[in-house]
Design a protein around this nucleic acid. Sequence first.
DNA 1: TGACCGACCGACTGGTCGGTCGGTGACGCA
DNA 2: TGCGTCACCGACCGACCAGTCGGTCGGTCA
Lengths: 235, 235
Amino acid sequence: MPRTDPAEQSRSRRERILDAAFSAFAQRGYRDTAVDDIASAAETSKGGIYFHFPSKEAIFRELMATTADKLVARVERAVALETEPVARAEAALRTVLATFAGHRTMARVLFLDLAGAGRAFQAETNALHARFAQLIRGYLDEAVATGAIPALDTDITSVVWFGALNEVVARWLLDDAPEPLEDTYPALREVLLRSAGVPEARIRRGGVPDAGSVPDAGAGAERQGAGAERQGAGA
Amino acid sequence: MPRTDPAEQSRSRRERILDAAFSAFAQRGYRDTAVDDIASAAETSKGGIYFHFPSKEAIFRELMATTADKLVARVERAVALETEPVARAEAALRTVLATFAGHRTMARVLFLDLAGAGRAFQAETNALHARFAQLIRGYLDEAVATGAIPALDTDITSVVWFGALNEVVARWLLDDAPEPLEDTYPALREVLLRSAGVPEARIRRGGVPDAGSVPDAGAGAERQGAGAERQGAGA
DNA sequence: TGACCGACCGACTGGTCGGTCGGTGACGCA
DNA sequence: TGCGTCACCGACCGACCAGTCGGTCGGTCA
């Protein structure tokens, strides 16, 4: 097949562009992928792309949406095979893991901040996450050692804790009119302690202490003594 | 104090730059913050900035590092006040939440992928997360309804599940020589089921099923029938 | 007083990249 | 044979921006 293979040609150009964009975004991220890159990977031209799509962003959005749809459909199919609720939850979990395992690229597009930065930062951020997870792990190991909680995989548990915290905070950050973040503490605490095998009795005893023991949050400014945390307005 | 207030001046220019960069990055993200923006916010010039820092990236890295250090120090201080292991873990959790609650900007710098994209995508990504969390929540609600698990806050639990999954996958994606993702399933399953209050007996029964019930992961190509998932080499 | 220096300034450069627009060839139709 | 149209091409435009570099200026020291 020299060029313009008919079978290949029949898959409309639009599809070829989408495929090319998909793997380009997954490999280099949105910002670092130029429309020209997509064009050449799809064996077309920039003009050809802008004939089919109004903007680079539109390509990305379409990709996100259809990819997510596919994953959701897959999960729902797997879940439908089970009837018992816990088994259904397990099936969902297992399916997501198995799907990503077989489609690393798909995972990249959906989970990594594809929207975002270059490799260097990705690694940096990852190291930061690892650092916090390690901190948590230390406390968990300690708890295991003293018998406060049963022996368990503290590696994964710490990752779960960090991931959960990360998500809770991110969600609060992106909320336009967020409730106070601390309000989530009691429920989050309960879930996380339970995940680490803390006995129910111990969980129910002692929610949030009335005061003290948390160093002055909300006091001093963000950085040093300067005028940080200024509102959106200023220059 | 008309201008060049001495007290203000004494806080070295370098600090002013760091402060300005901190809030600029937090508000607009790394990519969308121009060095000129930082300069004018710090009431200095681009040249002035490049006198103190070798590159834009260096500023960002320094900010990340010191911010993380501060948070870790704060957590460790709070933890040191407790002796019982579970209480220590609780203190850590509470401190992180309380700190971010009081320092939204700090949270933005550390947690959001500020390294990354513009607002539009952030919102998009958030919606996607919400969608998946909602999916999970459905299953959990079902489990509660049938009495398979005790009544609990399925809202946060689903967020925890999603966050955990997200983190596990992200970590696997950034690993250079990752173990198969499915290998984490048994441990992850255990932690998450426990977090949802599934009885220990039920957790121990049935780990991963021998086969089937997971639709053909790893089969068809990533997108349509095309040649996606090509390795890093190609154009 | 004059030589010197370090901090700081801002115009400029080199390069990148999204998006545009005037084509162009193949094809159907009259 | 002429004409319109669809799909596509690629040179080009304009904006944006990190980083550079020649220059200024307020001190300081001899």
